[in-house]
Amino acid sequence: MYKLDNNFIKGHPRTESLRYKFGDALFDEILNQDNVVVIFADLSSAIGLNDIPGRLGHNDLGKSVRHTTREFNRFIEVGVAEQNLVGVASGLAHMGQIPFTVSYAAFSPGRNWEQIRTSICLNNQPVKIVGSHAGLNVGPDGASHQMLEDIALMQVLPNMVVLSPGDAIEAKKMVKLMINDPRPNYIRLPRASLPTFSTPNDPLEIGKAYLVRQDDNAMVTIISTGSMTGNALLVSGQLFKQGIACEVIHVPTIKPLDKETILSSCGRTKITITIEEHQVNGGLGSSIASLILSSDVRPTKFKMIGVNDQFGQSGTMDELWRHYGLDVDSITNSIRHLLTSN
């Protein structure tokens, strides 16, 4: 059970960048640990690490590609070459390093899926793949850059762990968790800054889902991940005002799923809703549907909210979330409609 951030509860949440918080934490770990390295494919800016010389107090980037200091050597730039990105990472892992690869999710794992399958998953090397700019929240860059298929691509791979933090505090905590996890990991991060709902003291473990809103009278379980958990909490507040009590389960680890936490909530309530900023095909909703059908739990109604077999387009995050039915009002209406329909 999360305590939830006070400002979030009061309706004035801090809005923070998950990817920059992740980058800051990763930078610190690289300096503090002996074997953590990061590899960029010309997108160090995705996690705010585009000025490594500045951060390290150097100013000699560009003069030479031969790095001489220990710290400098732990920041590797492969250029716009995502196949090589994950291959090099696999080789580094074989030599005892813990490599984080950084690119946009549309390119990694979008472009290099087979290299991830063979060189990392089948080869079982503990590479940490960071896919930034996941979801419609990418905004003006348009459909080619709005990755909506990465959960599907990654959760189907044996050995791969799939992570999807909901706010900046969780994104920061994930860095250490990933370093300590011996398996290949994929983490998806949104481009947009999002409301912070959790607190530094809330628990976070790989493989666990968390009840972030509890209600003994709940008839609806809302299960959400990543950028949609903030919305799910706001939706549950709106529905509560309309006399509909909900539980909200936040799923920061999409694979392996925390079956116990999810099924026990679905068993307590009558209706299960999943929400994700991803295609409904192959995403969190599909996995929850499989989980429920393989169990004894039988919700009377089940709905998956996400992107329905469509690509995104240019626009602001708010415009896109509204258009694709992922903003708070659309989700609230969608759930209310489900409750009143036969």
Binding site: V88, G91, A93, T118, S119
Partner: peptide
Amino acid sequence: EGLSQAAGMAY
């Protein structure tokens, strides 16, 4: 893919 991995090991 092997060459990328070999390069990572050499690095």
